[in-house]
Write a protein that binds this DNA or RNA. Structure first.
Length: 477
RNA sequence: GGCCCCAUGGUCAAGAGGUUAAGACAUCGCCCUUUCACGGCGGUAACGGGAGUUCAAUUCUCCCUGGGGUCACCA
C-alpha cells in the first residue's frame, strides 16, 4: 500500500461540534496507526457561510484536543495551499480539462428554468439541457460574457459502486444522480468538485468523513474515473445523535468543544469519550490516552449505526481524569471556578484537595462551594440518614458541639477532631452521629466537599460557631 | 416521494450460526468510611416484528416497521 494520507477538511462556519471533531480524530488515529500523515485542509469555498475567526477556532480546537496535523495551512509540505479559496484557479483549470474529456459540460440555464423542472414533490433533476449545445454556441455565449456553471456529466445508464471500509459495498444507480454543479457561477468550485481535485492532488489515500456522503460517493468516483485518477479508499462514519431522531448539530449549543472546555471538561476526557462514540477497541478498554488510542485503533471496531451523545457518561469519564490529576494541577485548573467573592475569605488551597474526588467537571466547584457564602434556612430533615435516624440526636449533638467548640482555642483539623470526639463521649453520643450532625449543621447541605473537621477548619472558628448557633435554634423549632 | 444506509438493556457497546447474550455509564440495594462524597460488592434491565435457510438463528436472506442520510450555484 502507498503511504497512508488522511485529511480533515472542516468548513470555517463557526464552532466545531463534537461530531465533526470525532471525524477529524478518527482520520488522525487512522493515519497515525498506519504510520501515515494527517492533513488539515480548510474548505471555505462557500463565501456566504464563512464566519470570521472560524479558522482560528479550528486551529485551537485541534491543538487543545491534541490532534496534531502533519500538514496544513501553516505547515506546507509541498501540497499547498491548504485553503481552498486560495486554490481557486486550479479548480477551473481541472474543470475545463474535464469538459474536454466529456466528464463535464457548460450550463447556462437560469434559475427560472431550473425551478420549472421541479416535479410534484418539489424535487427537480437537471435535464442535461445544455449538454446539447454545440461547441460554437458555447463559445459564443462564453464570449458574450453570459453567466455559466460547469456541470458533471453523469451517464444515464448503469450504476456506481464501491467498497466502504465500514459499510462494505455500496451501490447507487446513475439514474438517481443529478448532473451536479462543479464550478459555480462565481468561479468557485462546489464541495463536490473541490473535494475530489484536492484529495487527488494532495494524494489522500483514505477519505474519512461523515456518512452523509455515503450515497454521493459513486458520483465522486465518476470524477476520478473521468480524469483517469486512482480512487481513494473510503471510510464513512455514522453520525452522533442528540437523541433518537435528531443529529447533533451546531444548533445544539452544548455540542461544541469550546463549550465543554468552558464547563470544565478536560480535553483528554472529551477526546477519549468521543473516540468511544462509534468505536470500541478489541479489548473493550474505555479510558485511554491518545497514544493508546492510536495503538488500538482498528476499523473493525467502528460502529456502522449511529450513536447518541450521552453527556452523563462523558461527565463520569471526565471525573476519572480529574481524580488522576495531582493536587497542584487540580488546584490550578479549578481555581477559576472558585467564586471570586469568597476566595478572599476562604483558603482554596485547603478546599481543592477535598474537592478533587467529588467533582466530575471543573465547574462543579462553583456550586459545591456555595455553602461557604450561603448559609441560612434549610430543611432539618437532611440530618437524617440511614446511620443517623433521629433528630433528637442531631439536636443534642449540635448543642454539645457548640459548647465544646466555643472553648476550643487551637483551631485545626486535628484539634477539632479530638474536641468533637471527647464531646461525643462525654454526652453519650455516637462518634459517627456527632460528626455527621456537625457537618450538616455548619454547612446546611447534605453533600459537602469534606467531613466535619475539614469543613469546620475551612470555615474558621467564628463562622463555625455562628452556624452551629443557627442550626441549634433551627433544630429546636 | 425516489435512491442509499442503519436496528442488542434507558445510553455507549461486545458478540459474526450452538454463549448462563460480556463490559461501561445511569439506576437500585448492600458494605466500607469517627460524617456526605470517594471506594468495594451485588441486583434490575436488551437481541423491533414476520417469513424463510438450517438439526440450530441475536448472528445469514427477504419483507414489514421504525430511524437516519441524500435528492442546493451548502459542505
Amino acid at each position: 500500500m502507498d503511504k497512508v494520507r488522511t485529511r480533515f477538511a472542516p468548513s470555517p462556519t463557526g464552532f466545531m461540534h463534537i461530531g465533526n471533531l470525532r471525524t477529524g480524530l478518527y482520520a488522525y488515529l487512522f493515519a497515525k496507526k498506519n504510520g501515515g500523515d494527517f492533513v488539515l485542509r480548510i474548505e471555505d469555498t462557500d463565501q456566504a457561510r464563512y464566519v470570521d475567526g472560524a479558522v482560528q477556532v479550528i486551529y485551537n480546537t485541534l491543538k487543545t484536543a491534541g490532534i496534531d496535523y502533519d500538514e496544513g495551512p501553516d505547515k506546507d509540505k509541498g501540497f499547498g495551499p491548504y485553503i481552498q479559496s486560495e486554490r481557486k484557479s486550479l479548480y477551473l483549470k481541472y474543470a475545463m480539462e474535464l469538459v474536454e474529456r466529456g466528464g463535464a459540460y457548460y450550463c447556462f440555464c437560469d434559475k427560472e428554468r431550473l425551478d420549472s423542472l421541479a416535479d410534484s414533490n418539489g424535487v427537480r433533476k437537471y435535464d442535461k439541457h445544455c449538454l446539447r449545445l454545440s461547441k460554437a454556441e458555447i463559445e459564443d455565449r462564453l464570449k458574450s460574457g453570459q453567466s455559466y456553471v460547469i456541470r458533471q456529466n453523469i451517464p444515464a445508464e448503469g450504476e456506481g459502486s464501491y467498497v466502504d471500509m465500514v459499510y462494505g459495498k455500496v451501490t447507487v444507480p446513475y439514474h438517481d444522480m443529478e448532473d451536479c454543479i462543479l464550478i459555480k457561477s462565481d468561479g468557485m468550485p462546489t464541495y463536490n468538485f473541490a473535494n475530489v481535485v484536492d484529495d487527488h492532488l494532495m494524494q489522500i489515500s483514505h477519505v474519512i468523513r461523515g456518512n452523509e456522503y455515503l450515497s454521493s460517493t459513486p458520483q465522486y468516483n465518476l470524477l476520478y474515473d473521468s480524469f483517469g485518477w486512482e480512487r481513494p479508499t473510503y471510510m464513512h462514519l455514522a453520525p452522533i445523535m442528540k437523541d433518537e431522531t435528531r443529529k447533533l448539530s451546531k444548533r445544539y449549543g452544548d455540542a461544541n468543544f469550546e463549550d465543554f472546555i468552558q464547563k470544565g471538561y478536560l480535553p483528554e476526557a472529551i477526546v477519549n469519550y468521543i473516540a468511544l462514540l462509534g468505536w470500541c477497541p478489541k479489548d473493550n478498554r474505555e479510558k485511554m490516552t491518545m497514544s493508546e488510542m492510536i495503538e488500538a485503533f482498528d476499523v473493525d471496531g467502528i460502529s456502522i449505526s449511529s450513536s447518541i451523545f450521552d453527556e452523563v457518561k462523558m461527565k463520569w469519564l471526565n471525573g476519572e481524569y480529574i481524580k488522576e490529576l495531582s493536587d497542584e494541577k487540580f488546584y490550578e485548573l479549578s481555581l477559576p471556578y472558585f467564586k471570586k467573592g469568597i476566595s478572599s475569605k476562604y483558603d482554596y488551597r485547603k478546599i481543592a484537595p477535598l474537592l478533587k474526588t467529588r467533582v466530575d467537571i471543573l465547574s462543579d466547584v462553583e456550586h459545591k462551594t456555595d455553602f461557604l457564602a450561603q448559609f441560612g434556612e434549610y430543611d432539618k430533615n437532611i440530618f437524617i440518614t440511614k446511620r443517623m435516624p433521629d433528630l433528637a440526636i442531631a439536636n443534642a449533638s449540635v448543642s454539645a458541639a457548640l459548647i465544646a467548640l466555643k472553648n476550643l482555642d487551637d483551631w485545626s483539623v486535628d484539634s477539632i477532631r479530638d474536641c468533637l470526639s471527647a464531646c461525643a463521649e462525654a454526652h453519650g453520643i455516637k462518634n459517627g452521629h456527632m460528626v455527621s450532625n456537625v457537618r450538616v449543621a455548619i454547612t446546611g447541605t447534605e453533600v459537602t466537599p469534606g467531613g466535619a473537621f475539614e469543613m469546620a477548619d475551612i470555615l474558621g472558628k467564628e463562622e463555625t460557631i455562628k452556624r452551629l448557633e443557627f442550626s441549634k435554634s433551627l433544630l429546636e423549632k
